[in-house]
């Protein structure tokens, strides 16, 4: 009986530490892992790389955790869409650069999300590694994406009900990468009819299987509003940067998909061994 109580106590302490760790995670990520100048320099080199490729729109991803902490097959933790823009600054000047259109999880209410536009230095501010996932769409897809943002239609695809492992084949929950997929498909199919987009995704998109047992995920979901399996059937699959890259490559929607490192080197995603792919 004593052992029983001790073990339960031990488990609860671990559990509380874990919960604290997770919630502190959002705050920890607010603190940069690198110096401001390193983040600024890296962010600017990502921008210049994309601009050098002539990208008016591209998909961008960051890694917010050590690779060993990530489920097998997943490398990036946050994905968004960067649009080449004219940016009016608070000092009255106008500058050319990329605005990044994100779906961000609410730090307080973790089962909710918001659409927020930020800029490369904001995007990489809390990154664990100075590396970026970059998918440069074909010229036609870029134009369709730019038009979608010009017409302010991307916001119509937002579902504020958040889950980190959201099922991309229904509209019950959404995470940042599923939102990116929905925006991409909305641009390609010229529609914001979410039901139609989900049918199309089911027909053509291959989601990433989450390599964790359903029991573990189910138990973990008891301790976070940001993780639920209520939108899944037997299999737990979600959208990842790697699955987006494969989808776009499979249907000739992309010109290039790379991992951009802090030394400026790029690795083609197909050749990368652990590049967030299935």
């Amino acid at each position: 009986m004593k052992t029983y109580i001790t073990s339960i106590g031990f488990a609860l302490v671990l559990l509380m530490c874990g919960i604290q760790d997770v919630y502190a995670g959002s705050q920890q990520h607010g603190k940069p892992s690198f110096t401001p100048e390193a983040i600024a320099t890296f962010s600017k080199s990502v921008e210049k790389y994309a601009a050098g490729e002539g990208a008016r729109a591209f998909i961008i991803a960051r890694r917010g955790r050590p690779i060993d902490d990530m489920p097998k097959g997943i490398r990036f933790t946050h994905t968004a869409i960067a649009i080449y823009s004219s940016i009016q600054l608070s000092n009255g000047d106008t500058a050319k650069g990329y605005a990044i259109h994100n779906l961000y999880q609410d730090a307080e209410e973790q089962g909710k999300s918001h659409l927020i536009t930020d800029y490369p230095v904001d995007f990489f501010w809390g990154a664990y590694a100075l590396e970026a996932g970059i998918i440069i769409p074909s010229a036609e897809v870029q134009q369709a994406l730019v038009n979608l943002y010009r017409d302010d239609k991307a916001k119509l695809l937002h579902n504020p009900q958040y889950s980190v492992v959201a099922n991309p084949f229904n509209s019950k929950r959404q995470n940042c990468t599923e939102y990116t997929l929905d925006v991409l498909n909305a641009a390609i199919y010229s529609t914001t009819d979410i039901a139609q987009l989900k049918v199309n995704a089911k027909a053509h998109f291959s989601a990433q299987k989450v390599n964790m047992s359903r029991a573990k995920l189910g138990l973990a979901s008891m301790f976070s509003d940001g993780l639920t399996l209520s939108d899944h059937g037997r299999k737990v699959e979600t959208t990842t940067f790697g699955s987006l890259a494969h989808y776009m490559q499979k249907y000739d929607l992309s010109e290039k998909a790379v991992i951009f490192a802090s030394n400026g080197e790029t690795t083609i995603i197909e050749e990368f061994n652990n590049a967030d792919s299935d």
């Binding site: 559990l15 995670g25 960051r62 946050h78 999300s113 918001h114 930020d118 664990y128 138990l219 993780l227």
Partner: peptide, 18 residues
């Protein structure tokens, strides 16, 4: 339980606004 909390930690997205 321990496994669940580590799972939770691993699966927690960093999709927070910085």
């Amino acid at each position: 339980l321990s496994s669940a909390l580590f799972t939770h930690s691993a699966m927690a997205d960093d999709s927070f606004d910085h």
